[in-house]
Design a binder for these strands. Structure first.
Lengths: 147, 147
DNA sequence: TGCGGTCGGTTTGATTAACCAACTCACTAC
DNA sequence: GTAGTGAGTTGGTTAATCAAACCGACCGCA
């Protein structure tokens, strides 16, 4: 990866922007559950392990940032479920690259959860340049900070 | 955040494993700085905005998990710097997908930091299946949980 | 010999957030 | 009418966070 000039204040950076929204212990696990089509508060709480009050604040924050949407599925009693918005669905590359990293560099052995790709093989995420299609290798990126 | 709340992670999942290591507000920003070759405590503190004491605990945790290494670069006075290990370098796909998401779904407008790929175009990260090479599209993944 | 500055932290003390258990409210089903 | 469920709230406690000050070992300069 590229090198950057030493600035004096925290960087103006879209990685930081992304982390402001999903850079805590629970948010990405909530998004994971919604990818698994677990849309209900209680299911999400159970599958993530997040305390219920924290989950409440995280869900609100994610709704506020347009990552998920809260929809009523029952009038009486009032019951709600959560769904990914397009912005939320766009997080799949982040989850898939994290999954691979967690598998290869945190946990050894077999991954307890496998995704199969429509090509017939297990899905393992790789990253490529959307312009030329080449898989990313070391030292191929140059920083172009804009003034 | 440092301590994972007593094994409350009901889903056995390598995404959660990854987040146990880098799923807090500062860790990925630290890794970002190391990608930018900012290796010193003071530089990392300045460029991330992390409080110095928090940075101390995060750096120790990342060393502990093998993401970064602490190396002495001066005997007297004793001075240290941090470097990415191969595991740390393997986080680039996570940072690049987060960067794209932050740009497209959190901040509008131009990305303040651009990477240029060796192909001559701006680098925008895409995700593909490492088996067949196809770019990921919706509804191509099937869950294969193993019991 | 003294003065200012750097580096890599640690300490302090106040604020904030996370956590957990128990509780509510509005129902449904028995 | 008792039990259970879903989606949260509430209260009390612990733990993490933060900004700012402090520290020790140097280094450069005069």
């Amino acid at each position: 990866m590229p090198t950057a000039p030493a600035d004096k204040n925290p960087r103006d950076c879209t990685i930081a922007d992304a982390l402001d929204v999903v850079g805590d212990r629970w948010s990405l696990l909530v998004v994971r559950e919604l990818f698994y089509a677990q849309r209900r508060f209680t299911e999400i709480a159970r599958n993530t392990g997040a305390p219920r009050d924290i989950l409440t604040t995280r869900l609100r924050k994610l709704v506020e940032h347009g990552v998920i949407a809260r929809e009523q599925y029952s009038e009486r009693p009032a019951r709600y479920e959560y769904r990914l918005t397009p912005a939320g669905r766009a997080l799949s590359p982040v989850l898939l690259t994290l999954k691979r990293w967690g598998h290869e560099h945190v946990r050894g052995g077999a991954d307890p959860v496998r995704f199969d790709h429509s090509c017939g093989h297990e899905f393992v995420a790789g990253v490529h340049c959307t312009a030329c299609g080449d898989t990313l290798a070391n030292d191929q990126l140059t920083l172009e900070s804009k003034e």
